[in-house]
């Protein structure tokens, strides 16, 4: 059975750390950086559990700052 694998990139400097992507993600792929901040002082989002990503775009859809890009492949 084909399996979907996904990944996201976060435009770190645009991210405001609002956490809405983290909440929207159905597979708990994302977290906010606990200590790291971007130039404007926000704890930005990142893939803390990249293996879980299914590339569903939920995070990107709810992101108010359009800083998430989503990639998806089918793995046989």
């Amino acid at each position: 059975m084909a399996k979907i694998k996904g990944a996201v990139t976060v435009n770190v400097e645009r991210c405001k750390g609002c956490n809405l992507c983290v909440v929207a993600c159905p597979t708990d792929t994302l977290s906010l950086q606990a200590n790291e901040v971007n130039d404007r002082g926000y704890h930005y989002a990142y893939m803390s559990n990249p293996d879980a990503c299914i590339g569903c775009c939920s995070c990107a859809l709810v992101c108010p700052d359009a800083c998430i890009e989503v990639y998806r492949v089918k793995v046989d």
Binding site: C57, A66, V70, V73
Partner: peptide, 12 residues
């Protein structure tokens, strides 16, 4: 290997 232009499904 996933993050390649041909696999992009959502961008700003």
């Amino acid at each position: 290997d996933i993050i390649r232009p041909e696999n992009k499904v959502y961008s700003a």
